[in-house]
Amino acid sequence: MTDSLRALAQRRWRVAISLTVAMVAVYFGFITLIAFNKPLLGRLLAPGLSLGILLGAAVIVASWLLTAIYVRWANAVYDADLQRLRSTEPEDTA
């Protein structure tokens, strides 16, 4: 029983750290472009809409998407597994 708890903890950790790394990559990718390729971000995609402004908004949208992915996973998969563990192991010894 404890083994399945341990496995669930590890699965949760892997999901959490992967999504954190994705967030870090998105944001620091944006910052690195700002720092090292300013002309690229100044390019206009449409009148008034520079790539920089679009990517800035995209960072915010990416934050939303990543949180949505996590919450979906946690609600559908993690909670169900945790519930199963609880029902097979009702006694709490912690």
Partner: peptide, 21 residues
């Protein structure tokens, strides 16, 4: 102009980290 927007994104990106970890 644009430079100010760097903060707009920076102040948000900590929140997913709060959620995940």
């Amino acid at each position: 102009g644009f430079d100010g927007l760097i903060y707009s994104t920076g102040w948000l990106v900590g929140w997913p980290v709060v959620l995940f970890l």
